[in-house]
Design a binder for these strands. Structure first.
Lengths: 243, 243
DNA sequence: GAGTGGTCTAGACCACGAG
DNA sequence: TCGTGGTCTAGACCACTCA
């Protein structure tokens, strides 16, 4: 049994990647394309869904479907200093920043190993490029640490918070990151302007000081079609000298 | 405008998480549910798609839709030795294993920094639990390294290959991992028994020896609904003593 | 207001699974 | 053989965008 929408996907993908459909151009209307491929509109739309997931097509309600400019994926690099991150920041990347105080709720108590309701400083970073949101980062620090939050967001990943921690005398010993793929929450989908259909790369980061206390927790959310992440680890076990 | 399928999602999710629909039980037929919610079958199926993405529902063609047992997510832990991985392996996890020799193609030349067509040893690991595939790992080592491939797959992540490398005198200096979310390829979807709709967590790993040569490359594919990953990094820059 | 995509429906046919 | 889910169609109505 031939799956017809995959045939449409393959043909449209070929036309886009070969430049036959130029970047930024509007595709013919769904009605027209459905007729051209002799499929129903739901079938054609399913094909477009796939191309949207691949980052090749952007749907704009009321206007049309467009060939999206190839997006330089935003990359989260683990364990980088804020200075290095700043220097490597993509041009045209704007970072919105907001600080507030919240009580621990939801996943935060277990992330930070504090009791629910504990006061936390919350720093929210929302990066966007070309008007398209690229990442949402929420960094939490227990208020008890008495750390001054940064006043401006320099990096999309909240490294400046950890810099403030170090400046305050906190000795960060290790950093653990858990990666998962999931559907965005309502708030995340709204902030990143995603449909609830597209997946996100979710990173939970915790920084621990030398006494084993969690001094920083962060929730990073990256749209799956616009982002990836990179981790580099040294391998102390398998080498004589290390690195 | 009310989005009807989201209403169905919310109600079914509530019934599942509260145990009103017990784990393992079959849901009523789509036809029936569509009637019960007064929606069309495509609308109901869209709701089921969401629940499937959330890992709550498993669709079985010809049999029905089932409430899935809460799956202990499989976790990829970066930089762990094979011995540690073996010891921490989930009970009931079976690992299929296959070794062959292939020529570098596709992403492999750039991953391993070799010319296309270079001979590589390919080790394929396919783990499954309760009859459900959990991970697909392909490890590549240049044939020129003259390393004996392992004869059995002990860990789902191919750490035993790196153990063999070390045993052969290769000095692994660092390990870099790139994480992305994408749609599975046809082969991956087939091996992991996924629809082409569900996303996968894709990890590209490269191990480099002290001379900077890439001695191992690996492609790890984890179904997004059954897996996550964990990375722990030391933070040499921000501490006096390190860890 | 005209055209676009977003959602939904009713019905159909096919492939798969189990008795 | 029967019931199930997988796919597809034709048509409808709504919401959004832009002239």
């Amino acid at each position: 049994m031939a799956v017809r929408y995959l045939h449409v996907v393959d043909d449209l993908r070929r036309r886009i990647t070969t430049g036959l459909l130029p970047v930024g151009s509007r595709l013919p209307s769904e009605q027209f394309l459905a007729g051209a491929y002799s499929v129903g509109r739901p079938t054609l739309r399913r094909a477009l869904d796939v191309l949207q997931d691949e980052g090749l097509v952007e749907k704009v309600h009321g206007s049309g479907n467009f060939v999206r400019r190839p997006i330089q994926p935003i990359t989260y690099v683990s364990g980088r200093t804020a200075a290095a991150a700043e220097q490597a920041a993509a041009p045209g990347l704007n970072i919105g920043f907001r600080v507030s105080e919240v009580e621990a709720y939801g996943v935060l108590p277990s992330l930070l190993q504090v009791l629910p309701g504990t006061l936390l400083i919350e720093c929210v970073y929302l990066s966007e490029q070309d008007g398209l949101p690229r990442s949402l980062t929420r960094v939490y620090v227990p208020s008890g640490l008495q750390v001054d939050p940064p006043r401006t967001g320099r990096s999309p990943w909240g490294e400046d918070v950890r810099e403030e921690l170090v400046a305050s005398g906190v000795q960060i010993a290790s950093c653990s990151e858990r990666i998962a793929v999931r559907i965005p929450t309502r708030e995340e989908a709204e902030a990143l302007r995603l449909t609830t259909r597209t997946c996100v790369l979710a990173i939970e980061r915790t920084s621990t000081d030398v006494s084993g206390r969690v001094v920083e927790g962060a929730l990073l959310v990256l749209p799956s079609d616009r982002a990836n992440a990179r981790f580099t680890t040294c391998e102390p076990i398998w080498t004589e000298a290390g690195r």
